[in-house]
Design a protein around this nucleic acid. Structure first.
Lengths: 241, 241
DNA sequence: TTGTTATTTTAGTGTTCGCTTGAATACAGG
DNA sequence: CCTGTATTCAAGCGAACACTAAAATAACAA
């Protein structure tokens, strides 16, 4: 009969509900999954392959994310596609990341030693990229896997996944600087790309963070097929303003 | 020394660091502590008393919050005062709360059944309170414990802690509406206050959320002693049960 | 129907968590 | 110094968690 909640019950239930979200983001594995899902929906198999965890383990982690209502799924044929329940989930994940980064000196040092240690040139800001892309001064290069590019990319970016970059280098003109971007500020793809490009004589820099941040910032994006992927150069009929 | 990090190592370390923050907010007890610390610094004993947990347990939870760098402490004499390491921690906690609230229908129903079920009049928004307080149409009533009031309160608010409200009712004029506020949207103090006030013939409503949100919104605040309510009566509630 | 594939569920196991008790530490004030 | 108080530390124990392996579902195809 105790439909009546004591204040203690209320308090406990309340914080327990909030803690569900906390539990969801309390495991490095689940954060990894969330981060991948920020780049677009995936099947369990995809996630297992990309994270290196077992299928079963991934499935169980996804259940936790689903009970916290952070992730939804849709079934299509044999596959179950999982995706972020809401864009606010991505925002939250980035907020958590930013908080951890701002609070933890160890984390900052670690990232600096790996990310900034490699990069002697400053990273490109969103504003700078917007401006220089508008003037046709740079090539915007998306080095994420192609499905992620198709699920959404910076407007007018070219897609060459990092593992195919070396083979497709010649598709990039050498007369303009290349700005590479990937999944986010902690993703190493664009760093690798910059290294590779520079070692081949390109002028290259890295966008300061990745596609999710660009999109969340309301910058222009496109979805779907590569507009001008890797074929002839077709020159920059794009300039002007 | 500089052990070479494989990409796998890097990824694991990185997400593990982020997960530290997640772990910190994955326990209802710790969220309760965080929520209290949003109202001002406290000793371990304070927190244990207010949450009903044991001293030792609270101390251990605080260590978790400290390793995640969300909480700092300062020693003063015999006591250790714990406080949020940064205002961004409070922001993050509110963001988590908001995310859970927006994503969980159960949570919304639970809160609605308790909070809004009691309150037939709509809650007061920040804007409305600003405007009507400016015109002197309302009394702003802080029903949190006095130390929280002193650590920061809405400008020109009167402090009457909820457990002393009934005894001090006569200090409130009946010709103006009373707007009560407390710790936040899920705190029940202001609801109790509204019930009590109405049952004594006052016109009363509740601010939609509490002091932390008001302050975070950049609204005018004050700190320190009560300006003009009943004079400080020593509030020596310092005995425990 | 049977078989195949993708995913979830179930058990089992070692690890971590959360709380309790009791001891150890740190500090203020005789 | 010693005494009292606030807090942390350490050990123990049951519960919850993370992963693996195996079995059970679900959707589809032949």
């Amino acid at each position: 009969m105790t439909k009546e909640l004591t204040q203690q019950d209320y308090k406990d239930l309340l914080y327990r509900q909030f803690a569900l979200v906390g539990k969801a983001v309390s495991s490095n594995r689940r954060l990894e999954l969330l981060d991948l899902l920020c780049q677009g929906e995936r099947t369990v198999e995809d996630l297992a392959r990309e994270t290196g965890a077992s299928i079963s383990s991934v499935s169980q982690h996804l259940q936790v994310l689903k009970t916290a209502k952070l992730v939804n799924s849709r079934k299509e044929g044999l596959y179950v596609y999982h995706f972020l329940a809401d864009e606010s989930v991505g925002e939250f994940w980035r907020a958590l990341r930013a908080l951890a980064f701002s609070r933890s000196a160890e984390l900052r040092e670690m990232v600096q030693s790996i990310v900034e240690g490699r990069d002697d040139l400053e990273q490109v800001s969103h504003e700078e990229l917007m401006e220089r892309a508008r003037r046709g001064e740079v090539i915007v290069l998306d080095v994420r896997p192609e499905v992620e590019y198709q699920s959404g990319h910076i407007a007018d970016a070219v897609s060459i996944p990092i593992d195919r970059l070396e083979a497709h280098l010649k598709e990039l003109p050498k007369d303009r600087e290349v700005v590479a971007y990937c999944r986010g500020p902690y993703c190493l793809f664009s760093l690798e790309a910059v290294d590779l490009l520079r070692s081949h004589g390109y002028k290259a820099r890295r966008l300061i963070d990745g596609y999710p941040e660009w999109e969340a910032g309301g910058r222009p994006v496109q979805r779907g097929e590569n507009s001008k992927p890797h074929r002839s150069e077709q020159s920059s009929d794009h300039h002007r303003s």
